[in-house]
């Protein structure tokens, strides 16, 4: 129930912020709101609802949603950007901006660090006694869920870089990190197929490991698409920008004539 209450509160705050922007005449894409809403629902359902399959398979479905799909949808909703635009100037807004731009945040969203926290955390969870311990202690279980969600959000922000951050990291570093994290995820999935954690009966661990392997692919492709589309859009903005410094002509495909130059040349 806590999960549903948290999701409801987050979505209510988000909608309040978006409405405030709209009322003063600023645009805020409804697609972002939809993305955030679905992400919040997904995370809550993953934690609180019964999921299909055997115990290990259901656990994997839960982690796929909580650690990968929900974070991507939440981050694409750009809640930090929305909050910074909706909040009035004052302590809260300054605090949020200060946190987002802080050295600590910059360190956490440095792509290799975010990847290590995210996939490294999974390796520690499954390949140490931690996994068994979470089944005995509910608070440890809840903490692991929280870590999976937060690390997923950090990793998504690090790869997609859609929120206001201190540094912008290169597409090469982000792409390489995504591939290496995807590989570490795939290797962990196969290692779980070979030696699953104790206490699950076949074929549940095999199904669960395959769900993890192929489900991870879906998340990796989605992140790669976001990365690629943002690179493409940045290239488009660079093309439309008037090439004053190089003295170049307007690009033939953009169809935006910059009129003064041709008339002068004709004369």
């Amino acid at each position: 129930m806590t999960a549903y209450a948290a999701a409801l509160a987050a979505v209510a705050l988000y909608i309040a912020g978006a409405l405030r922007l709209r009322r003063r005449g600023d645009a805020w894409s409804p697609w972002r709101a939809l993305s955030f809403g679905v992400g919040a629902c997904g995370a809550a359902v993953a934690v609180a609802a019964p999921l299909p399959g055997g115990a290990f398979t259901a656990h994997m479905v839960q982690h796929l949603i909580l650690g990968m799909y929900a974070p991507l949808l939440l981050v694409l909703g750009r809640p930090i950007t929305l909050a910074l635009r909706a909040l009035p100037p004052g302590r809260v807004r300054r605090g949020l901006l200060g946190t987002a731009r802080s050295r600590a945040a910059a360190f956490l969203v440095f792509p290799p660090v975010a990847a290590a926290l995210d996939v490294g955390g999974l390796w520690i969870l499954y390949r140490t006694p931690l996994f068994a311990a979470t089944h005995e202690r509910p608070w440890a279980h809840a903490l692991v869920h929280l870590h999976v969600l937060l690390a997923g959000v950090l990793f998504t922000v690090a790869v997609c870089q859609v929120e206001p951050l201190r540094h912008r990291y290169s597409i090469a570093l982000r792409g390489a990190t995504l591939v290496l994290a995807g590989a570490a995820h795939a290797v962990l999935a196969k290692s779980l197929w070979v030696t699953p954690p104790p206490g699950f009966s076949a074929p549940d661990p095999h199904t669960g490991a395959e769900v993890m392997y192929y489900g991870g692919d879906v998340a990796e492709i989605a992140l790669a698409v976001v990365l690629a589309l943002r690179w493409y859009a940045a290239g488009g903005r660079a093309l439309r920008r008037p090439a004053r410094s190089s003295g170049g002509r307007p690009h033939s495909r953009t169809g935006r004539a910059r009129t003064p130059l041709p008339t002068k040349l004709e004369r």
Binding site: L178, A181, G182, A183, H185, A186, D217, I221, L227, A228
Partner: peptide, 15 residues
């Protein structure tokens, strides 16, 4: 090696 090429294959297609 399998994990690396598996992950790289998807990324390479998109890029």
């Amino acid at each position: 090696s399998d994990g690396l090429f598996h992950a790289f294959g998807w990324f390479a297609t998109v890029i």
